[in-house]
């Protein structure tokens, strides 16, 4: 058993661009769920729309730099279309509508009917060359010490995506620390009270959904660029729930919680993955019980157990304030 290697695998996944993309998406989900109290169970739809908006624009002959704003604006539009009919209803309706919409959109994107635009189940590849052309680090070179290394391509992707994380966190921080953010939190606490104090609750919720949608799209675009690939089945509902785990793990309703949550989640997830793979290969009795494929699945169980323990011993999340979480709603 090489525990150093386990830590390394967890660490490299933790600082990677996928973690950054998750962090961005978790920040936007936190604006909606943690600060406005909106149950958006279709976050993955905003990520998909952003990614496809970008990829399709490039396929159609546009540049990537046009594709990115197209992807973001499409997600904003999705937020608007989704919010108009549902935000006046009770919170659970939004939850049901968003999860259904996310799945419906994915099925439409992968259908043969949409194939001329989306290329169906095969998706669209190689649309982000313009991004990697800007990479100042030679792609073949490796950076790091010993076996703790990343490729030049990864390094470039990491720098850009973590910069995006920083910008998004600063944006949300500015919004939440403003009177606008205070109204959002008031709506989370009691929307009738906010209404009785002259606040246009519907308008604020719509803004939260649209801004969150835009940031969700940015996250989807980062993931798509990193993989140079969009396929419909990358946008399963499971991703939305992983993002909820991240938000709750880090602390819903905190500025840095979603980022910390993403870092910890990825470290634990890939650390466990490496640990189980190593144990399966090196420890006889583990190898006897589990096949390599089964060992890979154990990490999901452990993540579930970890989340349960967290809910029991630290319900406010890692960054949350215990006093705040102990206050009952009424």
């Amino acid at each position: 058993m090489d525990f150093i290697a386990v830590i390394r695998d967890g660490f490299l996944a933790m600082i990677g661009p996928v973690t950054a993309a998750y962090a961005v998406s978790a920040v936007s989900l936190n604006l909606q769920f943690g600060y406005t109290g909106l149950l958006n169970f279709g976050q993955v739809a905003f990520m998909m729309v952003g990614a496809y908006g970008t990829a399709i624009t490039v396929e159609a002959g546009g540049s990537l730099w046009l594709g990115i704003p197209v992807g973001i604006l499409t997600a904003v539009l999705l937020g608007l279309l989704l919010g108009l009919p549902t935000l006046r209803l009770r919170a659970d309706y939004l939850a049901i509508t968003t999860i259904a919409l996310a799945e419906a959109l994915r099925l439409i994107v992968r259908s043969s009917w949409a194939e001329p635009l989306t290329n169906g189940v095969f998706g669209i590849q190689g649309f982000a060359d313009a991004f990697f052309d800007l990479n100042p680090f030679p792609g073949g070179a490796v950076y790091g010490v010993g076996t703790w290394t990343v490729t030049g391509r990864s390094l470039w992707m990491m720098i850009v995506s973590w910069t995006v994380v920083l910008l998004v966190v600063l944006l949300i921080r500015r919004l939440i620390k403003s009177p606008w953010g205070r109204v959002m939190r008031a709506i989370r606490e009691d929307e009738d009270a906010a209404r009785s104090l002259g606040k246009n609750v519907f308008g604020y919720k719509l803004q939260s959904l649209m801004i969150g949608g835009a940031i969700g799209a940015v996250s989807g675009i980062l993931l798509a660029i990193e993989q140079q690939n969009v396929t419909p089945d990358a946008y399963l509902p499971r991703l939305t729930f992983i993002l909820y785990v991240i938000v709750i793990l880090g602390g819903a309703g905190t500025i840095l919680g979603p980022v910390i949550g993403a870092l910890v989640f990825q470290f634990v997830f890939f650390g466990f993955d490496s640990l189980m793979a190593s144990a399966q290969a090196n420890i006889d009795w583990v190898g006897d019980i589990l096949s390599p494929a089964e060992a890979g699945q154990v990490k999901l169980i452990l993540v579930g157990v970890g989340l349960m323990l967290l809910m029991i011993f630290r319900p406010q999340g890692m960054m949350g304030d215990l006093n705040e979480s102990l206050i009952d709603d009424h």
Binding site: R182, V183, R185, A186, E189, A193, S196, G198, H330
Partner: peptide
């Protein structure tokens, strides 16, 4: 309907 997880002062501010 107090806004429980806002401070008393924040409650007042929201009404401005």
């Amino acid at each position: 309907k107090s806004l429980a997880r806002l401070t008393v002062m924040e409650n007042m501010h929201v009404a401005d």
